[in-house]
């Protein structure tokens, strides 16, 4: 790692002030993406602003018809939350499928979303539920938030403070895990909330998480695996690498969408 200076604010406001003063700084949440990248010297922030002492950033609550999760909430806490499991079990499936137990004990929802790794799980849940990402400055709809591989609508000096997930009547996540890394080779989140039907895919697209409009259209008649029986998506625009070809990923999107729908409607 290159050297850096280190700050440990205790509130989100302090963190934002530090970020304004240190334009080359990075925010440190769980650190399980950032620290490995810094070890490889692929990132060289001048400073790290550690959010882990900002207690105002963590927590899970049911607010009206939404589940509101603080940005610093760990994957294990969301996966095991009784509030989440009761109100929106499909959402609990997502952090429960991330990495391994030790990683889930440390990694955070805000970190995952801000990083927008094309193989990360949480972006699929956000897009697949039509979540709202709340920052220290504004609210951003998930549809506008994820702008491409490792890129988001976040501006300089902007910190995610919480994520609001509307409670969908039916929702589920299905993932084909890379056996070594645990990352999603492909992951599909499906949900139905009134007439709002969403199918969001992570891991597959060369531009990050995306929605499958053709599947969503077909599911409007009936929210069931049968409605998209035999449907596929084109391989163009899919990732192709040593792990899987674009054609294979495109195929998995259909398979996993049907499995997720089966889970959501079980």
């Amino acid at each position: 790692m290159y050297s850096f200076s280190y700050f440990r604010p205790t509130t989100a406001r302090q963190a934002a002030n530090l970020l304004a003063k240190h334009p080359d700084a990075k925010l440190l949440a769980g650190g399980h993406s950032l620290i490995p990248v810094m070890k490889q010297r692929l990132a060289q922030p001048s400073a790290l602003i550690d959010l882990n002492a900002c207690e105002d950033l963590a927590g899970i609550e049911l607010k009206g018809r939404s589940i509101v999760i603080g940005a610093l909430t760990r994957h294990a806490d969301v996966a095991n939350s009784q509030v989440v499991k009761d109100a929106l079990p499909g959402l609990a499936m997502v952090p429960g499928a991330i990495g391994d137990p030790q990683v889930r004990n440390r990694g955070t929802i805000g970190g995952s979303i801000a990083n927008n790794d094309p193989n990360a799980d949480y972006p699929a849940a956000c897009l697949g539920l039509g979540a709202t990402i709340v920052t220290n400055k504004r609210r951003i709809a998930a549809d506008d938030f994820f702008t491409g591989m490792f890129s988001t609508a976040l501006e300089e000096n902007e910190i995610i403070t919480k994520v609001m997930f509307p409670i969908a009547k039916k929702a589920a996540y299905e993932k084909f895990k890379h056996p070594a890394s645990g990352f999603a080779l492909v992951g599909v989140f499906v949900s139905k909330r009134g007439s709002d039907i969403r199918v969001a895919v992570t891991g597959a697209g060369s531009n990050g998480v995306f929605r499958v409009k053709s599947f969503e259209e077909a599911l409007k008649k009936r929210f069931s695996p049968k409605s998209i029986e035999g449907m596929t998506i084109p391989a163009s625009g899919m990732n192709s690498d040593i792990h899987a070809s674009a054609e294979y990923r495109a195929h998995l999107v259909g398979v996993l969408a049907r499995r997720a729908l089966a889970k959501a409607t079980a």
Binding site: L28, H32, I35, D50, Q102, N105, R106, S181
Partner: peptide, 22 residues
């Protein structure tokens, strides 16, 4: 690289990978 788990310790009673914590 936080994969193998040889570095696991407990931080405030919870297992974490000490190669990926400052």
């Amino acid at each position: 690289t936080s994969q193998c788990g040889a570095c696991v310790v407990h931080v405030n009673g919870i297992a974490m990978k000490s190669c990926t914590l400052l």
